[in-house]
Design a protein around this nucleic acid. Structure first.
Lengths: 128, 128
DNA sequence: GCAATTCTACTACATATGTAGAAGCTGTCA
DNA sequence: TGACAGCTTCTACATATGTAGTAGAATTGC
């Protein structure tokens, strides 16, 4: 499952709160994009075909809910990026992030915290 | 500058060693993809139009060299991902990587090392 | 009961992307 | 001095993506 840029917008609006109608989604997006209502409907239809979300009729109105969760979508996107640009290795990506992106101090600290937590919990919820 | 999946393949082959001819690039890619030579030529032409690489004639043969560096391309790709999927914040991405992707211990250690180095050098080479 | 509103379903169209064939130019080896 | 091989440029075509109009069904406000 590969979401396009426009599809991410839609999905984010849906993840924010669901189930939601096309109208609700359009309203949520109205501050960010300038799409016609039918454009949004088209995207919703395509996302339904792609099994990224589920459409249910309430009377004659469709309500939508995500099938893939946001973390799953993030995982997929990240995995694609890592494979494509970083030869599949997380290490170099991290390196890159840390060396190159010049994290603000507070984020470094947060990161250290997370790293230490990780040592105890061994956390995570696994696969895609 | 946004590279597509196929374009990444081409660019990676070029970054590996350049300048290079279409033939050389095709040879390098022959183990990974199964594209016709003309497909590769097409991609090279498009990448030239996109200013991702530069084409120079040596006699009647074109040699190519990258205009954008691999780290720049990585930066761009990462930035896009972060904006799209992680609301522009590196912190959550890190969190996600660390908590969710279950890094092997050795990578965590490496990461810690990088973090500590960063504290002294304040390293990095700045933005795109 | 009818007009205005709101949905949905269908259709459309431009640009991007993946993929490659055809035709023509040129160098080279017999 | 050709015939072949390799290279280039053009053209083509399917599918994906972004974006939206139109027509007809349903809903609602009087």
């Amino acid at each position: 499952m590969k979401l396009t840029e426009a599809e991410w917008q839609i999905m984010k609006a849906l993840w924010a709160e669901w189930p939601a109608t096309a109208r609700q989604i359009a309203d949520r997006l109205s501050g960010e994009v300038n799409w016609a209502y039918t454009t949004i409907k088209t995207m919703l239809t395509r996302l339904t075909e792609k099994k990224a979300l589920k459409e249910t009729k309430k009377g004659n109105v469709s309500v939508y809910e995500p099938i893939i969760s946001r973390p799953d979508a993030q995982r997929n996107a990240l995995k694609s990026l890592v494979n494509q640009a970083f030869d599949g290795a997380f290490g170099p990506l991290m390196h890159f992030l840390l060396e190159d992106q010049k994290l603000p101090e507070n984020q470094k600290e947060e990161l250290l915290k997370v790293l230490k937590e990780g040592e105890q919990t061994g956390g995570g919820n696994g696969g895609v």
